[in-house]
Design a protein around this nucleic acid. Structure first.
Lengths: 145, 145
DNA sequence: CGCATATACTACATATGTGTAGTATTGAGT
DNA sequence: ACTCAATACTACACATATGTAGTATATGCG
């Protein structure tokens, strides 16, 4: 039966989906942002101004995945895109004050998420889980065999 | 900085994405199926014939997410859909021989994934990871507060 | 300098997932 | 039997992610 082979795979995917959905539910009611958008804005806040490429790398995603999202954030007035002077291929992405405000507001959501985690997992357990997930991610991020 | 708040969230999502991508890469070259399709077929194999609703529940998803995927699997000749006699609202979904063959072939992929996991994680570590993920999933699957 | 290649980004097709609204059928209560 | 709510499923809009192909700019090398 293939079902047993899929057990850990399925657990990882469904746990990630449950976490994402809860965070999205909380975020969308309080800030009208998705978690993906919030994660992008958190990276931008930490490194602005940065290029599409740098943003994609920080989020461990492709540049092509960034185009649409960044356009949406720009349309909402949360970020600005300006051409880099030294390299005209690049954009320089930065938060607007409105974007900064949205990001600040999003902290409530992650505070709730983290409080729930703290209730359910001891610091040692969270540490162990983080280490396992880091190894899991590293294990599968190389080229396929 | 919001980045720290997002640490565990980001780890879970990126670890799940890395695992999904590796499995997809392997599966798509050997069977032309995605992991989501394979997971659906594994459920169908274990419980056929079953309704859209039962399938969605088993995959922890919405029925609306099933419609398109099931249509695709049907178009590929991997599953059949027939109306249930007792309740004409329901479909009865079952694998075709071709579907069963695809599922069998997919086992190679998950054998590789599981071998990689066995290399990197001891049985006890996998057990602990599975328990943590089960708790994490349960923690966030209820209604939002 | 001029050309080949690499890099940064965009455009679009495909796949998945969510949310919401709609249709058809069933079933429960009166 | 009739009505009304619940259930099973579909349709569609939107957000995200991947893969591939294309354009514009930069850069290295002869």
């Amino acid at each position: 039966m293939a079902a047993k082979d899929l057990r850990l795979y399925f657990l990882v995917q469904t746990a990630a989906a449950a976490l994402k959905k809860r965070a999205d539910d909380l975020l969308l009611t309080s800030t009208d942002l998705t978690t993906a958008q919030t994660a992008a804005m958190a990276i931008i806040a930490a490194r602005e101004p940065l290029s599409m490429r740098a943003l994609a790398d920080a989020l461990m995603q492709r540049e092509s995945a960034m185009t649409t999202m960044i356009r949406r954030l720009e349309a909402k007035g949360l970020i600005t895109r300006t051409r880099a002077k030294t390299d005209k291929r690049q954009w320089q992405i930065a938060l607007t004050p409105l974007g900064r405000a949205g990001l600040t507001k999003s902290r409530e959501t992650f505070a709730k998420i983290n409080a729930a985690l703290d209730d359910a997992f001891s610091a040692a357990e969270q540490q162990s889980l983080a280490e396992d997930l880091t190894r899991l991610r590293a294990l599968f991020r190389g080229a396929a065999r």
